[in-house]
Amino acid sequence: MKHQIRLNVNGDDYELLVDPWRTLNEVLREDLNLTGTKLGCGVGDCGACTVLVDGKSVSSCITLAVAVDGKKIETVEGLAASGEKLHPIQESFIEKGAIQCGFCTAGMEMSALYLLRKNPSPTEEEIREGLSGHLCRCTGYNQIVEAIADAADRMKTDRGKGVKP
């Protein structure tokens, strides 16, 4: 039996009819066409599918869509909400060369967002720990860590200009 669920994704409300065995990742990508969130390992190891549910980072590939009924979902598409001005995290990723093939990027950026909201001034060790649930097979980890440190600075200085973390 299909279940009727409500999701708020990046500020937009959706009412959906979903089969209980479909994951949040499938519903985001296939029903809502939000393909920025990737599917990597499918077992919660690689972090490519990371989204925020009520502000907490989770692996969307092993989260059932029915289990997040009524919740607020944030995906990488919500980072640059206007579609024009990039989020400071995205600016930093570009500037520091933290993107190679790009497959891990959406997940990395969502974990960066989660980390920086909890801890606006992380140490390098804390950034690395915050990224420990992510794999980058291009192995550009150093640039990603640098980008997040840079984003932390940027968000502190941008905050006065009304950029939300």
Binding site: K56, S59, S111, E129, G133
Partner: peptide
Amino acid sequence: TANTQIRNM
């Protein structure tokens, strides 16, 4: 235990 995302679930 595991990683951040798993601990959040």
